[in-house]
Design a protein around this nucleic acid. Structure first.
Lengths: 154, 154
DNA sequence: TTTATAATTGCAAATCATTTGCAATTGGAG
DNA sequence: CTCCAATTGCAAATGATTTGCAATTATAAA
């Protein structure tokens, strides 16, 4: 459930990004980055809020921080179609582009590296005259565990 | 902006679906189906509500109707990532599976028939032991019109 | 180190799409 | 034509997310 890089390597890099935009390295932001670092799956604001160390911070601050971290590219937002935004830390060099396979019963998430063919995307962009085309792709299904205990929520 | 089949052909088919589930063919439902029929792009509940003929109906009814129509498979829900559900009428025989290319500036929508390779999807399902795997895929970019009037909202 | 100050935060109230409880209506099977 | 479950209108409730504002705090500059 944890990333490969050392947690400590996270802050210097993030600090750099923040400073570049005249932003401050605050307690809440540091905590959010650490929390996201130790969970390899997309997390909701509430989940992150719940993991905040003692003292914590206001939920509104979590929302504001995530919005900022997303805007400077340290974090990526995902939409699993349930109207709850989820966030994942972007790896250093990595462009962070990947997809997910979400269980429609228990919401278990698996990372999916397979991506929509880039050439196809370019083709679609060309055909319609659109520029800067990107895509949002997520898979949904029933995980092995839920498939067994049919009917039950796990 | 309109479908190829005749509007009149819409009701009998829909009636059949509704009756099968002991549901009633009411004014609001008829209107919603007609509105969706003459707009070939996904519409929000508010947009549909705004197009209701004189007399109209309550917005809550639009929400309830769309939910019902979706559950019996007459309508399909789409998520463009802005937290507003959009609905499209499913064509008769058609399984209704296709995607969209949405302008991030003006929200103009273009239908995209190109789909994620089915075999790849099966592969992903197999690799992870998930069953009944489906996907949600949408493209985002800047439409030709917006690309010209750079910076401006069109 | 101290200071000046713009960036942050906490808190509560506001938004916004969507849902729901409930009493009054109404489609349609028999 | 009747009866009753399915629908609807209305207003209040939800739930995620945003925002105004005054108090706090990180940090660049002196």
């Amino acid at each position: 459930m944890s990333h490969c890089s050392h947690p400590a390597a996270l802050l210097p890099e993030a600090s750099e990004c923040l400073r570049r935009d005249a932003r401050k390295i605050t307690g809440p932001r540091r905590s959010i980055l650490e929390i996201l670092h130790r969970h390899s799956h997309p997390m909701t604001s509430k989940e992150i809020f719940a993991q905040m160390p003692k003292g914590g911070c206001n939920l509104a601050t979590v929302y504001r921080s995530l919005h900022l971290l997303e805007s400077i590219g340290l974090v990526k937002r995902y939409d699993f179609g349930d109207n709850i935004a989820r966030f994942e830390l972007k790896a250093s060099g990595d462009d962070g582009h990947h997809h997910h396979l979400i269980c429609t019963r228990c919401s278990t998430v698996v990372k999916v590296e397979t991506c929509f063919p880039p050439e196809w995307e370019k083709q679609i962009a060309r055909e319609n005259g659109y520029q800067k085309v990107t895509h949002r792709l997520e898979f949904f299904g029933v995980c092995p565990r839920c498939a067994t205990q049919n009917g039950e929520v796990c």
